Computed example of a mutant assay.
Amino acid sequence: MTTDDTAAPPPDEESAPSASAEQPAGKHGKKARKHLPVWQESVLLLVVALGLAIVIKALFVQAFYIPSESMEPGLVKNDRILVQKVSYWFGRTPKRGDVIVFADPGQWLTATDDKGPTGMAKALSKVGLYPTGGHLVKRVIGTEGDVVQCCDTKGRILVNGKPIDETSYLSPERGQCSAELNEFDQPCTWIIGPIPKGKLLVLGDNRLHSADSRAHICAPDEDPCTQSPWVDTDLVVGKVFALIWPRDRWRWISRPEAFADVPDHPSASLVAKAKEAHLVPGS
């Protein structure tokens, strides 16, 4: 047997082409995706979270805190609340009984109430990560066309002649109609309206400690009458729908049934009586 007849030796393993060199790595022949460093992923997640917070705050939900005792006992000073902005989209407006947050209609806020959060909290509030200050929280009592009167013999507010039973949320501290003025020197008895288009009349639940629409009613002998008790619907941020802090008092906030039977319009005699009172400009 010659050397030519001998079998050729197997190819050298080192010289054989590598399977990994011939095929792309990863499942189904795709190259494995390169992961970002941890610090870059963290920055990216933070940017996305801030972006979502800004969008949510601008369009849907925003956090606020209660600036005073005017909405007690339901909402206490420094409580944190959530406001739903979409409630009044597409031409919808606040309804009687809604608790709303609105921008200052003009010198309703004191310097203390208007200061809002400071420092880092102020920066976080800009992106919706901390409750915002500088706004007012009140309950809608009258809407466009309504005549509101204080009060009947039981101390109840009347809307379009209908007395409203507010015992489910009103502060039990004395009746809102008293022989003496409250701490804001607001009158005990008054009738006002009809409420102009695009305007609201609002009151605090703690009636004896709330600088609300009543604080801006003109005196009957005030001429000219330059004050305005109305809140423009364009100033409304949204409807309060949840109390979120402190945790032991967390609850949903909804519109009470007290206003369900209010007539849609006041009687002609009630309108005439309200206009004779001269408590608002143009009445």
Rank of each mutant, 00 (worst) to 15 (best):
P224A: 11
A219W: 11
V237L: 14
R249E: 11
S228F: 03
S210D: 08
P224F: 06
D234Y: 02
S213H: 08
C218E: 03
R214P: 06
N206Y: 05
D221L: 04
W250Y: 13
Q227L: 15
H216S: 02
R249L: 09
P229A: 08
V240W: 01
N206H: 13
R251S: 10
I217K: 08
R214A: 12
A215I: 01
P220F: 06
W252Y: 13
K239Y: 03
H216P: 00
L235K: 15
E222D: 15
P229L: 09
S228T: 15
A215F: 11
Q227I: 04
R251E: 10
A242I: 00
G238T: 04
R247Y: 00
D223E: 13
W250K: 08
V236L: 06
V236W: 04
H216T: 01
V236C: 06
R214H: 10
L235Q: 12
R249Q: 13
D223Y: 09
I244H: 00
C218M: 08
D232E: 12
A219T: 12
V237W: 07
W245S: 05
V236N: 04
T226A: 14
H216G: 00
G238K: 01
R207M: 10
V240L: 06
V231G: 11
T233P: 04
T226V: 15
R249M: 07
R249A: 12
P224G: 11
D221A: 14
W245E: 02
R207H: 12
D232H: 02
P224K: 10
D223T: 14
V237H: 03
W250R: 13
I217M: 15
C225R: 12
A242C: 04
K239E: 09
P229G: 11
Q227N: 15
V231E: 06
A242V: 03
I244N: 02
L208C: 12
E222R: 10
R207T: 14
S213P: 10
S213E: 05
V240H: 00
T233Y: 05
Q227Y: 09
D212M: 04
A242G: 00
W230S: 07
K239N: 10
S210I: 13
D248L: 05
P229Y: 02
I244K: 02
D234E: 12
